[in-house]
Design a protein around this nucleic acid. Structure first.
Lengths: 324, 324
DNA sequence: CTGTTAGCGCATTCAC
DNA sequence: GTGAATGCGCTAACAG
């Protein structure tokens, strides 16, 4: 027949079951993941009235045992779906596959594990982000740029994909561009400064830098010292505060945002749809499009405030005659 | 106390009232507004279970009488909120102010009228879009670009704001840039071709073109004929099909998307929140951020399909050693 | 195992 | 006017 169950009535009836979703991260003190969490919390607030509670557990950085404990704790408190930023470790894979067999769905967030059962992966199109970076450099360098990359370790999935994207775009489409240097920086401000500085000193021909360690801003200081005139074209990642400041200040030309808030939000919504409507996501890989932000993207117009018409900028047809 | 009404229960109880939202446009056959409508429909599908119906009325282009009739019809069928793409005419203003007095909220979509009571305006930050265009030209022209603009009539609110944004950015921040020509094209393919061609012929010094009449693609043909080598830097608006094709083909350098789907979606959500929770929007002006799309933004990675791991692009740490 | 009923939290209606 | 009862559409617990 034409019967469509009514989601609202269904969730009202289901409220008493006290459904829980658990989000597990293994990163502390990272601005990008703070935004992921705020996306999670935004979605959590929206689905609270549906009788679904969301709890977030932030484990220690890359601590496998801690992540395993968090998974156990989540199961123990009876959670009905797990959203996970996974650590790439066989113990996690094993644990998640077991979980899947017991009927608890797993949603990967920002990264995923191969050979591991899951409902889906919610992330960003890291590969495309890399290709976009390549194109930006191509556009501003007249197709003859010399690129250096400062990056987290390439063993991380997203990082690897991003660099492959940049590389493949250059090879396939921008023959005049060159990838000249790549510097992998472990998570440490001191090393970020040193590696960035060393790269620039070792490669004076560099005119483009892909600074993809936004969490570490001391590398930006190294760049500022060695390039006080802002001759280098710098593209970075995400809209965390130090990056935004550098874009506004004219030091960074563009930043490619991996939409952490949307990622967190979407992951919760996938879990929600699964728990309430038993809807499996249409795609195993839900990739949020990276977005490009430049200086003017952060321009405060003032028009978005409380009043409709901004007296400084109301419609003025007379101002629109041709000019010279 | 700490009482928070439960939205779900409330809407279940309210279902019998058969609430209606009416969306009224005055544009036919415009791809941008097709996307606005699809955003509306997406939100409509989501709130259907809440017992709220959405109907869309698309009137004749800029026909004031028709828009007035549509408003009357909406009121007559008992709709509880009106979402309107307004025509700038005093009769509309009068009618809307009357409506407001009878308690029917009006939400402006993509444009608004001054001196007119409304719940809020949902649009795009047109001013910022203009500033972004200016910055893109500045970036790729080494700060010495000569800009020509092809635009719809500046009497339209968004159009005017956009051009003011571009202009003010140039005046304030890009002293080496010049606005050389502005061509206002009424909605007509023949004129679009002719005006665009005339502008290019009259201004051989032009190296940047802001082609902001995406609905009319014959101007692009004029550009293609006069600039077969793609020496002009072209920035356009929105992601409608002819523009996307031209970006993919390398003719258009970048397009600034005014997020029609998000605008339509947001307008419905505002009405929904008002009708169900009696929540007034926090801002009178809800401005969606314009987004920048370049060629690689349209790159199909293939990874977003049904499988998680793309064998062509799985993690390969060995590929990430430094190169030359 | 199938059929019936209570109740999720609220708005509306009806009785007083 | 104030207060109690009904039902929105569904799930869960219950009874047969």
């Amino acid at each position: 027949m034409h019967y469509r169950p009514n989601t609202v009535a269904k969730s009202l009836a289901t409220q008493r079951r006290n459904i829980k979703i658990c989000v597990i991260l293994h990163i502390q003190g990272n601005l990008f993941f703070d935004d992921v969490v705020s996306g999670v919390e935004k979605a959590a607030a929206e689905i609270k009235d549906f009788g679904i509670a969301v709890t977030v557990r932030r484990g220690a950085n890359f601590d496998v045992e801690c992540q395993l404990r968090n998974i156990d704790a989540a199961v123990h408190e009876g959670c009905r779906a797990i959203i996970l930023v996974p650590i790439n470790d066989p113990r996690i894979t094993t644990r998640l596959n077991d979980l899947h067999d017991t009927g608890v769905p797993v949603i990967f967030l920002t990264s995923y594990l191969e050979q591991t059962a899951c409902l889906c992966h919610v992330g960003c199109d890291y590969y495309k982000a890399g290709r976009i970076a390549a194109e930006l450099f191509n556009l501003v360098s007249g197709g003859r740029g010399r690129i250096g990359i400062v990056t987290p370790p390439c063993t991380l999935l997203g990082v690897n994909l991003r660099i492959q994207g940049l590389r493949s775009a250059i090879e396939q489409e921008y023959p005049g561009m060159r990838l000249v240097a790549l510097s992998e920086v472990p998570g440490d401000e001191v090393l970020a400064y040193r590696y960035t500085r060393d790269m620039l000193l070792a490669h004076p021909e560099l005119d483009c830098v892909f600074y993809s360690i936004g969490g570490l801003s001391s590398g930006l200081k190294a760049i500022a010292e060695l390039d006080p005139q802002h001759k280098l074209r710098i593209v970075s990642l995400d809209m965390i505060q130090p990056i935004v400041d550098a874009v506004k200040g004219g030091m960074i030309m563009a930043t490619i945002c991996q939409e952490p808030i949307a990622q967190g939000y979407t992951a919760i919504k996938v879990a929600f749809d699964y728990l309430l409507a038993h809807t499996e996501p249409a795609l195993k890989n839900i990739l949020i499009d990276p977005s490009i932000k430049i200086r003017q993207s952060f321009h405060e117009t003032g028009i978005s405030g409380a009043v409709l018409a901004d007296p400084d900028r109301s419609v003025d047809a007379a101002s629109c005659v041709p000019f010279s």
